[in-house]
Each structure stands twice: as structure tokens, then as C-alpha cells.
């Protein structure tokens, strides 16, 4: 052991040690590059959700319904968002529009903003103030939800905005705190079902009997769970009123 070359930091490196240290350096530097590639190139696909700024600003009119989070049943649409569509809505950032929409419940409103789109899921991010959401003239047709019975679904609760493309990836456990922050801000929670339910892969989540998503569900955001829910069809959107007592982490 005592014959080992003795390294003193401020003196030249002993000859015997030089080769060893060069090899270590080379291994570490090359290893760093290889590790960067290995980790970086094996990240999961975040999906195709995105802000559709390329569509331009969307302005449509429809009836506001509170579930309690607001939905818009489009009565006067455009090429992208035809009449008959049901839109979930969000404000800019991690905030929903419940306070702005609540006074207009059951009335016609004109909304304007940018669309977020992921497969069948879409959501409109409204502009601020009157430009984003204002009462519209005319008689509002009645909105009648259609009950579809009680279901047991497997999937994941996400915040609808990040999932729809505000963040890529916008789901999963690494994103859980962000999702909670969005949900407490009033952004509609969305359930991603393992397989389509009556044709829908994405369902909006509420609590039982017209309440908001229960607090207990926040502990399960981002996890793969099984839950029982009363499902109702609101226009072309399915809303699931989950029963928190039946919520279980899936195997």
C-alpha cells in the first residue's frame, strides 16, 4: 500500500498515476454523454395535446350550465366548434372560470379564446374580462342531462387543462402537485378511462349530487384507480359523479 504513488494536489501528478487518472476522466466524460443520451432518449411520449394557436381565436355562443363547474352547450358555433358541442372552459394559467360563469347559469353567453385539443378532449381557454365571456342576447334553450347509470371505471383523474395540452406531459404522478394546483384553481378535472365509455375516453369529474370533486379524490390524482360513478351525458360530453367511498388504487 505504501508503494502506491503519492498524489499531492499542487505538485505534478506522479507518472504511475497519470494513465489511471486519464482513464477515469475519459470514462466519466464519455459515461456522462452516454447517460445523457440513455435517459433523454427514453422519455415517454407525452401525447398529442396542445394549445391550438394555429386555429386562431375561437368565438362561439351557447348556454352555460353549472355541474357545478361551468360547461358551455354551443348553440351558435363555427367551423371548428359546431353547434351541439359541449365545451369545458378555463381561464389563463391555473385558474378556471366558475366565478365568471356562475352569474350566467342557464343563459346564453358568448365565449372567446384559444382551443386546447387532445384527441376527443378539448377545452377553451377564455380571454380575460368581457372579451372572453359575456352574456349574449336571445332565449336560451333548456339543457337536459341524460343519465347513463352507474359505472365502474378504471383510469386516472387529471386536470383537464394540462391533460388537453397546456403541459406535455400533463398527467401522471410527477405532475400531481401541478394538477392539484390547477384543480383547486377551478380547472375542470377530467378522468382518462382505460377504454371508451359510451364512445368517450375522457369524462369530466364531479362529486355526487351536484357537488364539486370531493377532497378525498385529490389524494388519488395522477394514480391509476378504479372508481364507481353516476354518469350523465351533457350534450356531447360525459360527466361522472364519482362516489369517493368506492375509489381504489388499481392493481
Amino acid at each position: 500500500m505504501k508503494k502506491a504513488p503519492f498524489f499531492v494536489g499542487y505538485l505534478p501528478v506522479p507518472r504511475d498515476l497519470r494513465v489511471f487518472l486519464w482513464i477515469i476522466c475519459a470514462l466519466l466524460v464519455v459515461g456522462a454523454g452516454a447517460a445523457g443520451y440513455a435517459v433523454g432518449s427514453t422519455q415517454d411520449n407525452p401525447g398529442d395535446g396542445a394549445f391550438r394557436f394555429d386555429y386562431g381565436r375561437q368565438t362561439v355562443t351557447g348556454v352555460i350550465e353549472l355541474t357545478p363547474l361551468p360547461l358551455l352547450h354551443v348553440t351558435e358555433g363555427n367551423d371548428r366548434i359546431p353547434a351541439g358541442r359541449t365545451l369545458m372552459m378555463t381561464a389563463g394559467g391555473k385558474a378556471g372560470v366558475p366565478d365568471r360563469a356562475a352569474p350566467l347559469e342557464g343563459q346564453l353567453a358568448t365565449v372567446s379564446g384559444v382551443l386546447l385539443e387532445r384527441g376527443d378532449l378539448d377545452m377553451l381557454q377564455l380571454r380575460g374580462g368581457q372579451g372572453g365571456l359575456r352574456a349574449a342576447e336571445g332565449d336560451a334553450p333548456a339543457v337536459t342531462p341524460e343519465p347513463l347509470g352507474r359505472w365502474k371505471l378504471t383510469g386516472e383523474i387529471c386536470d383537464g387543462k394540462c391533460l388537453a395540452g397546456a403541459m406535455r406531459p400533463g398527467r401522471g404522478l410527477a405532475h400531481k402537485a401541478c394538477a392539484n394546483l390547477c384543480l383547486t384553481g377551478g380547472i375542470p378535472p377530467v378522468f382518462v378511462s382505460t377504454q371508451p365509455v359510451e364512445g368517450a375516453e375522457y369524462l369530466m369529474v364531479t362529486g355526487p349530487d351536484g357537488t364539486a370533486m370531493p377532497d378525498a379524490a385529490y389524494d388519488r390524482v395522477g394514480q391509476f384507480i378504479t372508481v364507481e360513478a353516476e354518469i350523465t351525458r351533457h350534450g356531447d360530453l360525459l360527466v361522472m359523479a364519482i362516489d369517493p367511498a368506492t375509489m381504489e388504487v388499481s392493481d
Binding site: Y37, G40, S41, G47, R168, P169
Partner: peptide, 13 residues
């Protein structure tokens, strides 16, 4: 280097 190698529909943020 890796964003090009990932080949996702849309890039990770």
C-alpha cells in the same frame, strides 16, 4: 440531441 431521437407526435415541453 435527444428531442430529435424521441420521435414523439409533439415534443415534451
Amino acid at each position: 440531441l435527444t428531442p430529435g431521437a424521441l420521435g414523439h407526435d409533439r415534443p415534451i415541453n
